[in-house]
Design a binder for these strands. Structure first.
Lengths: 142, 142
DNA sequence: CCGTTTTAGGATAAATGTATCTCTAAGCCG
DNA sequence: CGGCTTAGAGATACATTTATCCTAAAACGG
């Protein structure tokens, strides 16, 4: 479904959102906390900052933090920033140019299920998830 | 969403189902018709035959054909034979052991959308698709 | 100002997925 | 039987993803 990078990015974003603490958090701390390779996670956060979702600061007491409120960042934003929009736009059979004009056999069926997927991710904010995590003590690590 | 191999396998299966002709069809013919690498497609059909969905015959007038009626083969069968069941079983965040007992934050949300996906593919047979293809002249190639 | 900490960015290595190649086995036909 | 055709199976390239490494660049603190 998602690339490994995207899974890591989602978990990291959910972890940050679930912290009371607002301010910079080092990527090393996040990686160690979630058992994710720190250098790889650094690359992922670069995508998130370049997409405008996060901001970063170097040096001691530096790290990453949200560029806007977690209330305003959706799971869809994170997914698209890392994996791109293909999952939500491309033909499920990989046919270039598949669309209403020249649909593949699965086009109509797939449309009915892709839209709910997109809506789910686009309507769920990091703050929503953070509340669920804190209330139900949900886990972000194995 | 699906691997390239799975996209190819679905297109090939839909192509075969849409043929009136029942009997062996050579993989070379399928590959050339759908613009898919013939050696790679051969590997994919090996998975489908090993999964019991197709049967094969070597030599002239050989090729591949369905092992059971296209009325009894679903898209789900093809997908699982090629990509495995992970898409329908594994945690969307990649957490091992995620389930009702120890759910990840997305578990419940995702369950609501994964089940419809699974149902869609599991309830659509190759024969269903073949009818749609013939009626609406839908395309399987770019 | 200099050493330390941290992210940024490019280059490199390992792993997986995609695609090709070669040889074998099976089936057809003369 | 002998030559041709086709799928099977293993080995080999190629591409992409995943993961690591190394050198900056920026920030802090003595």
């Amino acid at each position: 479904m998602f690339s490994r990078a995207c899974e890591y990015g989602l978990r990291a974003a959910l972890y940050l959102a679930s912290l009371k603490h607002n301010g910079y958090v080092s990527i090393r701390e996040i990686g160690e906390r979630l058992n994710i390779s720190v250098p790889f996670l650094t690359k992922i956060f670069q995508k998130l900052t370049q997409a405008g979702l996060m901001q970063s600061l170097r040096g001691p007491s530096g790290g990453v933090m949200f560029a806007r409120s977690p209330e305003e960042i959706t799971l869809f934003d994170v997914i698209v920033a890392i994996d791109g929009p293909d999952l939500f736009t491309e033909c499920v059979l990989g046919l270039p140019g598949c669309g209403e004009a020249a649909p593949c056999p699965l086009h109509d069926h797939w449309k009915e299920v892709r839209t709910p997927i997109r809506d789910l991710f686009a309507s769920t904010t990091l703050a929503d998830m953070a509340r669920r995590i804190q209330e139900a003590r949900l886990r972000l690590t194995a």
